[in-house]
Design a protein around this nucleic acid. Structure first.
Length: 429
DNA sequence: TCTGGGGTCCTAGGACCC
DNA sequence: TCTGGGGTCCTAGGACCC
């Protein structure tokens, strides 16, 4: 039995409808109105205000399927503005970091805090203090759940978000409140149980988080593996997933985009792939990595199964690379191997894998001077693009930023209010 | 007509070795 | 030559997450 003072306490802080909330911070007229934010190419709804959810707009629904709802209810529509959301996320995380000795940034809009070593009499009051501070400093509303395991903390935050009574904070550290909370949570809402597992469980009579917690896990172990066992333990209040505080770096880095309109010719496809390689190279260098392998892939529309074509090519590099010119050369060769004439390509992408970190990679003994020169060129280009804006300096292979059939569209993009001096919010007449 | 992007982990099965 | 057992490594695919 774990003594109470040794019980870990996790708090999960979750930004409400994060992308929509970011837009609202700089456009107060959006309050209380249905608002959605779209995926790349303005394809799907990926964030929805509560008012938009109430209209029946579901996560990931294609815009063309909800056009009538948008028109009928005057839904406010925004393209994704990742520069804005990324910057707002940093502000939220910075604010949160003052409230706990340790924090794990779990995603762009969620963080786990470790509260176990703080001696609280009233966790709920502390949660409210966090909420109000984040709202005051950043304008972003958050929901908070507390519990002795991450899975329970997530579940608590989910209820905190929906329940009026909870007012944005739910403390489930006391076991006596958990039965009710788990009963009102559908099994598919449990962290780690997705569509496939939920369907499997529902057929076998497991409908709520409580059903799953109290079930004989032997029935589901074969299907769900070790994670199923862990999820159940976590629901029982036994922590299986620790706070992960240090960023180990990405193990793979990928860049892909769907095209505005289908692409048929090699040169356009090559420009697109080159553009993604350039971006991928920046990401590699930003985390101090070199890649030992690169996969290039192209695909036609998966919504047209009759003419569907997908192909990929993986190149293994003799020495780990992050020098863009070299990556581009390999990319072009790879694309030649998988390109087939007469196909209407709708998407391409590149994945870097087998990453090394912090410059620990096999040096080629004979070209150290060239390599350091290449490193300096990359450093300079990355710095200019960071300061002057993405794509200020780039490579001919990318088509030099000219608008092409494959260029991603953002027809409803808001300004980069927080990161670009030229796009500061204008107040007054 | 119009359907996103970027990740992680686990497992089963094959190749290979002793 | 055939057979058995056990171990490791790698990869593809499937599940999940936001």
């Amino acid at each position: 039995m774990i003594k109470k003072k040794d019980m870990p306490v996790f708090a999960l802080v979750d930004c409400n409808n994060f992308y929509v909330s970011c837009e609202r911070v700089f456009n107060p007229g959006l309050a209380h109105r249905p608002v959605i934010v779209l995926s790349n190419n303005d394809g799907c709804a990926v964030a929805r205000s509560n008012e938009a959810k109430a209209l029946g707009i579901t996560m990931g629904v294609p815009v063309f399927k909800i056009r009538h709802l948008i028109d009928l209810h005057d839904v406010q529509v925004f393209s994704s503005n990742y520069v804005l959301y990324g910057d707002m996320s940093s502000r939220v995380m910075q604010t949160l970091s003052a409230f706990a000795p340790a924090m794990e940034i779990y995603s762009i809009d969620e963080a786990f805090l470790s509260l176990g070593r703080l001696a609280f009499t009233d966790l709920t009051a502390y949660g409210q203090q966090i909420r109000h501070t984040v709202k005051q400093y950043t304008g972003i509303p958050v929901s908070i759940g507390m519990a002795p395991s991450k899975t329970l903390a997530k579940l608590a935050a989910g209820i905190a978000k929906k329940s009026n009574k909870a007012a944005g904070v739910l403390d489930l550290t006391a076991p006596r409140f958990r039965d009710r909370a788990l009963e009102m949570t559908p099994v598919e809402d449990v962290w780690g149980i997705g569509r496939q597992y939920a369907r499997y469980l529902q057929i076998r009579g497991i409908r709520t988080a409580r059903d799953f917690r109290d079930a004989d896990i032997g029935r589901f172990k074969k299907k769900m593996g070790i994670n199923g066992v862990r999820i159940q333990k976590e629901l029982r209040g036994e922590s299986c997933y620790d706070l992960e505080t240090d960023d180990p770096g990405k193990k793979t880095i990928s860049v892909s985009r769907s095209f505005k309109t289908p692409v048929t010719d090699f040169d356009s496809l090559s420009e697109a792939v080159s553009t993604y390689i350039v971006r991928g190279g920046e990401k590699l260098r930003a985390q101090g990595s070199h890649a030992e392998a690169m996969t290039v892939y192209v695909t036609t529309s998966r919504f047209k199964p009759d003419s569907f074509y997908y192909n990929s090519d993986t190149t293994s590099f003799p020495t780990a690379l992050n020098y863009t010119s070299a990556l581009l050369a390999h990319g072009r060769t790879a694309l030649k191997r998988i390109f087939r004439k007469g196909r209407a390509y709708t998407k391409a992408g590149v994945i870097f894998s087998d990453l090394t970190r912090n410059g620990i990679y096999q040096q080629d003994l004979f070209d150290t001077s060239d390599r350091s020169r290449a490193d300096r060129v990359m450093e300079t280009m990355d710095r200019i693009n960071l300061q002057m804006g993405a794509g200020t300096v780039t490579y001919p292979a990318t088509g030099m930023g000219r608008d092409r059939s494959w260029t991603t569209v953002f027809n409803h993009r808001s300004s980069a209010y927080t990161t670009d001096w030229h796009q500061l919010l204008t107040v007054g007449p």
